[in-house]
Design a protein around this nucleic acid. Structure first.
Length: 580
RNA sequence: GCCUCCGUAGCUCAGUUGGAUAGAGCGAGUCACUUCUAAUGACUUGGUCGCAGGUUCGAGUCCUGCCGGGGGCACCA
């Protein structure tokens, strides 16, 4: 049970070695999808130069050693020296049957690594915006995928729960009164609360002074101030959890590791770096100057780890996360699912940690860069100017749009069913839109497109799954049908069956790929292709009206397709409704 | 100014790490529903891959230089 590539690649490699000698062991077979066959071997062209032979002759010698009779029905040299491979229908059928019986449907169980994933990271007393939405959704998909590949995933939600704004926020909380409706805004509309504090701060000098004093008290650990601070965090947590629950994100309170977590480690970080001679005082601030980092007019750019007023910035907390994740969490792999603009900052932090010896060989932090979300004008979507874009409102709107379409398309479903489906479809649409473009590319935020229920969208995938479920619902005796679909030999006869089966065989490779390269959009495009392949199959190959072995083979193919679709969507964090 | 990412069909985006004639979706046009869900499918339309060189059997992909755009570049995170 394995994908065509994983079966054939070793055989080609063995053939290369057999044909050209041991020094060619390990040569990349350059196995690629082909428009002329199922797969093509491109290695002969690459080898021709090294061997000093014409590519077609290389292909010929390789072919003489290539043993694929059990897998392929046709193997031929083509063009300048490609070897085209056409898989045997019997092999495809047998492999697909075997995947059908596999609990993991072809997804490998990899050697267990401890993977720490930093994602989401909203700010206390602030609305999550579309940028947060994207790191949250992408990070969660990666967490789910890596977990399923067998890794020990530790989620770290590095919320912004510390810093100078808290003086202002605490004073505002005191002014409006704890437990009042105004304070409750933190749970429902945090931006409104924040704006309120901001306005006071900007317009009322006495308030501003109190706020600054409050920051000092907070940093000094004043118990009363800390209590008020934790109340702010607590209220915000309710807000985060509501969003996470709405989104179907796996983050919980256990994953919270906000900036404040590292407070008591920051002084030591600065001391150690200063003692080691890595950090030096410049303009009153403690800085790390690294080779190769220059800014305007060639001036060296510092990583500031202690401000001239004695406070700490995010550079210091980020250093602390590395130590914590390496020394205490014992991370083998560390992912930072953070906006692309942070790239320079992170590189400096990591280089500093390397210098300090806090980042051992073999532990490579990875910045999963999240591209900016753009508005229709192709400029960064900002919540401040223009119409405020509240995430909750946006998700509600997505669900409402989905609801309208469902109402129109499925008047036969009862009210409760339609009400339950709408958020699954609407939220799924938004998440799929976020996941289906490469995480590091910018994309234009367009709610209408995201919620569109046709094309390369979440709902299209959900619909394919719902159609399969409908087939099983329509079957007379469900238990018998299920049994039939679970054990039957899959036979590939029609082109649509063949294409569908071939797609199904690739699932495991794709998931492994997503885990290795941290690219959920590949899974999206795979699933979209699978849904398309199924739709074609659905058009051309009647299932329940077929008879005998054909019927049970097709039922089995449907069951496997459903399994892969639902499972793939689950790895992305998208639900698959029973009906649509 | 320096660093960095990007420029692919009218629009939104892929492009499996250098392979044969560059792909999807949306849009536009034609066609197919007494159906296991037409929220679909089939076909058509659509490209100097920003420009110019270079590397080699072969470049959307690699190197250089331009043009255009985003982002970053000392006490906000």
């Amino acid at each position: 049970m394995a994908s065509p590539v994983s079966v054939i690649a070793p055989r080609v490699m063995a053939a290369i070695e057999a044909a050209f000698g041991a020094e060619f062991a390990g040569t990349d077979p350059v196995l690629r999808p082909s428009q002329y066959a199922d797969l093509q071997v491109n290695a002969p062209l690459a080898l021709a130069k090294r061997l000093g032979l014409p590519p077609r002759e290389v292909a010929g010698r390789l072919l003489a050693e290539l043993e694929l009779a059990d897998v392929c029905e046709q193997v031929e040299i083509s063009g300048p020296g490609f070897i085209n491979l056409t898989l045997a229908a019997t092999w495809i059928g047998a492999e697909t049957t075997s995947v059908r019986a596999d609990d993991r449907i072809g997804v490998p169980l990899e050697p267990r690594q401890r993977v720490v994933i930093d994602y989401s990271a909203p700010n206390v007393a602030k609305e999550m915006h579309v940028g947060h939405l994207r790191t949250t959704v992408v990070g969660d998909a990666l967490a789910r995928t890596l977990e399923h590949l067998g890794h020990d995933v530790i989620r770290q939600n590095h919320i912004g729960d510390w810093g100078t704004p808290f003086g202002m926020l605490i004073e505002h909380l005191l002014d409006v009164g704890e437990g009042t409706a105004e304070a409750r805004l933190l749970e429902t509309d945090p931006n409104a609360f924040y704006q309120g504090a901001r306005e006071r701060f900007d317009g009322d000098e006495a308030f501003a002074t109190r706020s600054r004093e409050r920051v000092v008290a907070l940093q000094a650990g004043d118990p009363d101030t800390l209590r008020l601070w934790s109340e702010l965090v607590e209220l915000s947590r309710h807000y985060f959890n509501r969003i996470y629950s709405l989104l179907g994100v796996t983050l919980t309170d256990d994953d919270l590791a906000g900036e404040s977590t590292y407070n008591d480690r920051l002084a030591s970080i600065c001391d150690e770096l200063e003692t080691a001679g890595i950090a030096t005082i410049s303009d009153g601030a403690l800085c790390v100057f690294l080779d190769g980092y220059t800014g305007r007019e060639g001036k060296p750019v510092p990583l500031i780890i202690r401000k001239s007023d004695g406070g700490y910035g995010y550079g210091t907390t980020d250093l602390a996360t590395i130590r914590y994740r390496v020394e205490e969490l014992r991370a083998d792999r560390m992912l930072y699912v953070i906006g692309a603009p942070q790239a320079l900052h992170l590189r400096m932090v990591w280089d500093t940690a390397r210098l300090a010896g806090w980042l051992p060989e073999g532990v490579d932090p990875v910045h999963v860069q999240i591209g900016n979300v753009l508005g229709e004008d192709r400029k960064i979507l900002r919540t401040r100017s223009g119409a405020p874009l509240r995430l909750v409102a946006l998700l509600d709107e997505a669900a409402a749009t989905a609801r309208a379409v469902i109402d129109a398309a499925r008047p036969d479903l009862d009210e409760d069913t339609r009400a339950a489906i709408a958020p699954q479809v609407g939220i799924g649409a938004v998440k799929y839109a976020d996941l289906s473009v490469a995480h590091d590319s910018e994309y234009v935020f367009d709610l209408a497109r995201m919620v569109a229920l046709t094309g390369d969208t979440g709902p299209y995938l959900q619909y394919a799954a719902a159609r399969i479920r409908s087939i099983f619902r329509a079957a007379d005796s469900a238990p018998a049908v299920l049994a039939e679909s679970g054990t039957a030999q899959i036979k590939v006869v029609e082109p649509a069956e063949r294409a569908l089966a071939l797609t199904l065989l690739d699932f495991g490779d794709v998931v492994a790929h997503v885990g290795a390269d941290l690219e959920p959009h590949r899974l999206c495009h795979y699933l979209f292709g699978l849904a398309q392949a199924f739709s074609v199959f659905y058009e051309h190959c009647p299932v329940l009206k077929a008879e005998g072995a054909t019927r049970s083979s097709r039922l089995s193919l449907c069951a496997l397709t459903l399994k892969v679709l639902v499972h793939g969507l689950d790895l992305l964090g998208i639900e698959a409704p029973e009906r649509m």
